[in-house]
Each structure stands twice: as C-alpha cells, then as structure tokens.
Design a protein around this nucleic acid. Structure first.
Lengths: 339, 339
DNA sequence: AGTTGGCAGTTAAGCGCTTAACCTCAACAA
DNA sequence: TTGTTGAGGTTAAGCGCTTAACTGCCAACT
C-alpha cells in the first residue's frame, strides 16, 4: 500500500505538504496541490487511519457497550447510533458484554486504550466501579438509560423519562374506560430501574384516578416474549375480570397477547394489551401493539451527540440529559373494555 | 495516561524490556519482570492499542458490513460474529450500509485504510467492483452468503446450501401428507439468489415427488412480516384448497401465519406454515414456527474463522467454503393436512 | 585456559502520519 | 533602501509501541 511519502516523493515535495493538501490546511500553491491530488488518485493512496489516529492522539471511533440483543431494542438502538456516529465521521465499535461483567471489563479496558475516543455504556451488567475507573483514566463515558443503580455515577448520562411512559399508558387505558387492569413487569429485585420507573408511573396514575392497585405479575425473564407469556398466563388465570394488561416493555406485551390468544380471549375486544418502547416488531403484530414510544432513534442520536460534545468540549461537569418525553402510539391492541 | 516509557523509567529499564515483559517474549529476568509488572499495576498502565497496531502493522479489528437490520437475522449474526471475533482477540466494527451503495463504498474505503484487518461483507448492496477494488489493495475480504450475483468474485466466500434448505422444507411437508402447497418468496428480479435457491430446491423436490407446481406469491418486501402477510393473503384468497404454505424466510412465514389467522384459518390444523433461517423469533411464536435452520451462529463463526485464516495464512487462492447443511426444525406450525 | 553459548538486557530504527517552528523569496510599503 | 509581510513551502520532532540486531557477562564445556 502506498504511503504519504510515496506520494510526496513522486510529487517532489515533502510529506508535510502532501498532508496539508489532504487536510486542506497550511498553504500550498494551487499547482502543487493539483499535482499532489493527481498522484494520489493515480496510485490509489489512502491515508492510514491508524497512523493518523496515533499522530492526532484520537481515533475516529466510538464504542457502544450493550449487554445483549435478546431485546430487539438494542439492535435498533445500535443501528441508529451507528448512523449518527457515521454522520459525525466516526465508526462504531459494538461490544456485547453478554451477561458477564468480566467481558464488559475486558472490553472497557481494551476499548479505552486508544482504540476508541469515547464509550457509550448501556450494558446493565457493567460494574459501576469499572466504569468509574475508566472515566478516571480520562476516557469520555456517557451512560445511556443507566437507571440500573440509584447512586449517581460521576459521568455524563442520558435518561429517558420512563415514569411518564408508565403514566401515559395508564392514562390511555383509563381514558378507554378500563378499571380493572393487570400489570406485567420485570423483577424489581434485579434493580432494573427502567422497569421500576414505568411501573411506578403507571401505578401512581391509577392511584390518582382512584383506581385500585392492579393485579401484578412479575417476570424474571424480562427480555423475552416467553416471559411475558408466562407472566400474563399467570395473571389472567389468577385474576378474574381483568379487561386490560399493561406490560413494561413490548416483548412482555407481545407475550401477553399470545397468552390472551391461548386462553381464547380476543385482543382487543376481550382484553386490551399495551407495552412500552415501540420496537419495530410492535407495529408488525396483528393486532398491532399499542405502546408508548421512547423515541429510540432520538435517544441514540442524543447519546452520540452528548458523547461527542463531551469529547470535543472536554466538559468536566457531569451533566445529565433527558430525551424528549415518551409518546403514546395508539394501535389496534387496545380498545374500550367489553360491557 | 501513562506510557511504556513511564513504566520503563520507573522500573529503571528500557521500553524494550517492558514490552518484552508484557508480551512474554524475549528474555527478561524474573526479578525484573516482577518489578515491571508491579509498576504496571501500580500506575495503571494500559498499552495503547493504536500505537501497537501501527507498530505491528495490523489492527485487532474486523469489520462487518451489513445492509440493514430489518431482518433480525442480521443482529443475530452480528452478535455471534462479534463473540467469535472476541474469542480471537479482535473487535468488530459493525457498519450498516443501509440501502446506499455509496455508504458501503465509504465504509469499505475507510475501514480498509488500516482501521481493520479484514472485512466480512454481507451487504447485498455493495457494488462488486468496489469489493474487488478493496481486495486488490490487499485487504482480506470474505463474502458471506453473497449469492447476490452469479459472477464469482475473486475472493474468499462462504456459502450456505439454501437449495437443500428448500428441499428439506418440501420433504417435510410432503412427508406430512401435503399435496397442495403454496409458496411465498421474494422477487427474483432483484437477483436475490438466497431466496431463489430456497425456492428452486423446494420446487425441484416437489417435482420429483410428482406434485404439481404450487401456487406462488412473490413479495418485494422480503424482510418484513408485513410482506409475508400481504403475499399469503393474496395466495390464500386466490388458490383454494392449499393445505400448507412455505415461505422462503421466517419473517415472511410469520406474516403468512398472521394472514391465516386473519382469514380464520387455524395453524397448523387448517394450514401448515413454515419458513427458513430459524431466527430467534421463530421459536417464540404461537404456535412456534417450523423452519429450516441455517445455523446462524455456526455461519458467523465460520465467517470469522475464514477471514482470520485468510489474514494469518495470507492464502492467495480464493476458496469457497460451505457451512454444514441446513437442518429441519420441527415445531408447532406444521401438521398433517386436514382430511 | 580458551572457547562456546545462553541469558538479560540495551540500542535504535522504524510503523505512517501530524504539526509547530522555521526558512526563503518575492512583493510591497515606508 | 530597509523592513515587513505573507505565500509556499521544508525540517524535524514526535505519537506509543515493536523488534531485529547487538552488547556484556557469566557458567559450562573441551
């Protein structure tokens, strides 16, 4: 592969000049610039990005740490994040930490040793102290939807107002006339605040409306349809007269729809079902799933922008950003309760 | 951030010795090694991977070019590929080329300028000449499931036997007793050989069994459930007496199941439905989707291994590998035809 | 005693690029 | 005439790491 000095040699100038031509900096005569450009095109020279990264002290790469892709939300997020990064001239290194905090640590470690300029951390299984260690080494880190832990970590973070998401869901079901509503949520003991918040927003709204606390089914397996199926089956067979089910994410909601079908209850005529997130699958269901959209693409774009801001401005104070509020997406899986 | 020479200085040795300690090469006395290691741990030194990549002339990174993630198969593949790459000490740069060949070109270009050691190309929208140009520059490229084009590109490739996949599907339905079978496939004019092959294997097997060619519905939108829904609706309303539908991928098949439900036909009692690929969603449907698994994880692992072999052995001949044959996964969406 | 060989380390030359600092010369104003 | 200025370069010092080649030194052979 040709290098800068190959080009320089052929053009009869120094590498500095060629570099200046490429970067459009410094002052180079038009004739020289043209000659250099012609040679670059001729021999097919491409700058070595690794060398450039070393010389500039920064890599055109951002890392995204996600725990798993069991939930299609993550690929959707990753894709949007990658597009946003690309628009800013950056690559995205996607790292699946799976369920193993040590894999996360290994990634954090390697990624923060020069390969990437910053880290977007979404993986709930990362240990807070590992993140802090990396941040302390001067690597820009942005926490995305990191409501896993209550203690505020000393770094930038981007949060989504999941409380409002729960509230919107409750308001929608109440407005339709439902008064006997079941809740399918994730096990709170795992400290998964993203579910707890939705859960609480939902309950608070019902309480304000004077509706008694709903029957609840908790599922450990919060990122599978099967989990929602089992939870809803349990819920529907235990509690009579439920006319609606709210699940704290779309996957659980889809499982709930399946449970309704298995029990011979039609959605939405006999039972309304709704979720949170608005994954692409939600719109593809029959009936299409009513849900509260959190704006996946917007969240991804904000995350990238926040990280890039932190990198470029080097802001020290660790700000906390929120994305625009969630939005109710009315589809076919909810309707007024049967009389 | 501390550098090699910081460590060397504190340890009273040269950077070469520290480097040797880290890499376990050369010969270093046990006492010195221990001292160096202690200092590394003490000051929290991490090798700069960019500098290492430059010095070694290779980056610990592989690039994966996918076109989109509309079909959940791609994230599943990407995840498996990333895990395989990690086990080999590599990172995975995921690049979504979307529908734009120029984005693909830009990625190919940048990724092949030192940032990654090799490229896994799955994106059907990449232009063959762009791939050839990159390969000619000496960048190892492996084509994965690149049956988009008939002309053999001069590079390594990994293919899946989709013809057998179609055959297995036909054999399964025939064995169950179906004689009137519908086919939902992707538009062949787009040159999407991965669908055409499944399609042909299926038809050939039916023909061998003396079963007349089935009714067929072609869908442009091959990577959405909605596409399968529309196609199957068309098919089922046009052709009377169909007892089974074979769709050339799982998404189309899931759409077909929805269409059956919309028409009041129970799956599998009234209509059997099956697909190809075995995406995770297939197992989560109710009834669970019978399908022909192509071994996504195995394909991903083979891709990575093939690419790494090409990189390490620098093999010049452009071999073509095949993954293990597809396997029928019998689930609840197929049954003998109604009498 | 003289050689050999291996261990423990050092030296120094890169890898391909960026960039601050410097040089030269023509044009121009004072 | 002298000084200033700016355009159009050049020089050279890195960025942080790897590695081939080399240097001492000491124990072990013959």
């Amino acid at each position: 592969m040709p290098t800068l000095s190959d080009v320089a040699q052929r053009a009869g100038v120094t590498t500095a000049t060629v570099s200046n031509v490429i970067r459009g900096k410094g002052s180079v005569g038009p004739a020289t610039a043209e000659r250099v450009r012609a040679i670059i095109a001729d021999i097919g020279y491409r700058p070595n990005l690794t060398a450039r990264a070393l010389a500039e002290g920064r890599a055109p790469t951002l890392a995204l740490l996600v725990s798993s892709i069991a939930n299609p939300f993550y690929p959707e997020f990753a894709r949007a994040a990658e597009q946003a990064a690309r628009r800013e001239g950056h690559f995205l290194l996607v790292c699946h930490t799976e369920t193993d905090a040590d894999i996360g640590l290994a990634y954090l470690d390697r990624v923060s040793s020069g390969l990437s300029e910053g880290v977007l951390a979404m993986a709930g299984n990362l240990r807070p102290q590992d993140l802090v260690a990396v941040a302390d080494r001067g690597v820009p880190v942005v926490l995305v939807m990191w409501e896993q832990t209550r203690e505020a970590l000393p770094m930038h973070s981007l949060t989504v107002d999941f409380h409002t998401a729960g509230r919107l869901a409750a308001e929608h079901l109440l407005a339709l006339g439902h008064r006997s509503i079941g809740l399918v949520s994730a096990k709170t003991a795992e400290g998964c605040l993203v579910h707890v918040q939705r859960h609480c927003g939902f309950l608070a709204t019902l309480a304000e409306a004077g509706v008694s606390l709903p029957d609840t089914s908790i599922e450990y397996d919060r990122d599978t349809i099967g989990g929602g199926f089992r939870a809803a089956l349990d819920l529907l067979s235990r509690a009579n007269g439920l006319t609606a089910v709210f699940a704290t994410n779309d996957l659980l909601a889809i499982g709930a729809m399946q449970a309704a079908a298995a029990l011979g209850r039609r959605v939405p005529q006999d039972l309304s079902v709704m979720g949170v997130t608005d994954i692409e699958l939600a719109a593809q269901m029959r009936p299409a799933l009513t849900t509260v959209a959190i704006g996946t693409v917007a969240v991804a774009e904000s995350s990238i922008r926040l990280l890039l801001d932190k990198i470029r401005l080097g802001s020290v104070h660790n700000e906390q950003y929120s994305t625009p509020p969630p939005v109710l997406i009315r589809r076919g899986s909810t309707a007024p309760p049967p009389r």
